[in-house]
Design a protein around this nucleic acid. Sequence first.
RNA 1: GGCGACAUGGCCGAGUGGCUAGGCAGAGGUCUGCAAAACCUUGUACGGCGGUUCGAAUCCGCCUGUCGCCUCCA
Length: 484
Amino acid sequence: MEKLHVYNTLSRQKELFTPIHKDFVGMYVCGPTVYGDAHLGHAKSYTAFDVIVRYLRYAGYKVRHVMNITDVGHLTDDADAGEDKLAKQARLERLEPMEIAEKYTNSFFKDMDVLGVHRPDITPRATGHIPEQIEMIQTLIEKGHAYEVDGNVYFDVSSDKDYGKLSGRNFEEQLAGVRVDTAEGKRNPNDFALWKKADDSHLMKWNSPWGVGYPGWHVECSAMSNKYLGETFDIHGGGLENQFPHHECEIAQSECAHDKEFVKYWLHNNMVTLNGQKMGKSLGNAISLNQFYTGYHKLLSRAWSPETIRFFLLQSHYRSTTDFSESALEAAESGMKNLQEMIKTVISAENGKANPVDVDAFRNAFIAEMNDDFNTAKAIAVLYEYLRPLRVQVTNGDIPSNIEEFAFELQKIAEGVLGIWVAKSEGNQAAKALDGVMQLVIQLRAEARAKKDWATADAIRDQLKASGIEIKDGPQGSTFNLTN
RNA sequence: GGCGACAUGGCCGAGUGGCUAGGCAGAGGUCUGCAAAACCUUGUACGGCGGUUCGAAUCCGCCUGUCGCCUCCA
């Protein structure tokens, strides 16, 4: 596509992307509730939105990317009866809730950093925005969209005629089948909590006009997105499972508080399964990202690098479900390594004398795929299509006269947008030393080979391989590679 | 029960009313002291049954199956 189109959950179709303010994009992505280790689901969601942000910037937009950290209000059960997730984990680990928040916020970013996910521009914490949330709740009460009952404040769903527009639910018809055990004082079973009264056992609680309590889960996103992105902004992203109730409630709160459209484009990534099954603690297949990175889990036969996981994810579309299996990861890993070799070869080449490669066509092919709702799978296919023949040319010494220009664009795309190429660690001292040593070893081995002393030549190769260095003999001499 | 999505060659996975996705694996070959890599050649797939159409894997209907949401989850 010539112009960027995104699939908008609100309209259930691809729409031309037009930002509210020319050249600027405000984007909010639902962040993690920090009470446990990040898993594949987080990887999929945040990799997807990472590429979206990177691409928007590549396309020339100034992006403000906001991602919340939920450290209060997210309950284990439903909005009526459950326990706060962080409070529960704090009890289990015998830590302060804020220690839990800090611990898992740190591990979350650590896991995302190695996946190549850029950090957002702003990562507001829910507990750091209690006044903003209280203010929004007050506005909703004043406008007749919320009511207080005994220290609790609920959003009145019946006051919002648009409630259900995102998830496509019709609540009037559905009332009959709804669960019966609603919280005391709620006028309507679908009404959801904006503020909850806290009893003495609660660790996280704040003063409010309705007494001591804590905010409901949904209101943090409305309050914080408003603070950093305004009353209406361009893109809101998140996982599909948050469509209802979370995002539906956000829309209700924000649009009723401001009497304005909340978000122009709703983007949702699909779910992750493991060996065809939903991941869940009860199923015993909830593997954390760190366990993938280390291979330390009974369902894993080995470690899987973050870059393999990222590449695997990008080979499918963000709106498709992704099924993880070790065989699929292995296939992705092989393909990725080959692609990285091609990239390396092309990037290190110097301009030759052969006919120039069509850089514009390459760039346009990539853009065309990404403009179609961020089709990273096809974008990667474009890389293979261009790089395979180019590598042959470079290997044969038949190098295009403008390969450096091509390489520049390639780096912007592969490393800059897709994040699938980690720059080689040249320049550091150990690498330089290794280079020097290897030149020597390769030369000695070449001498042995010249004398047809295959025993020595093979012994050198085998022993190097055992220490993670792979030697490859080619027509122009031998090269080496680090394996892991 | 309500809402929604998906079903593609050995595997993963794009896409689409007529034109090669791509990757991985496999087979044959080239190169090579051997090995590895690379390169070349090779597969004519789209759950089942109907319908629309000159033509459907692509649109419509039904069926079957899988999955998700409706309750915490990215």
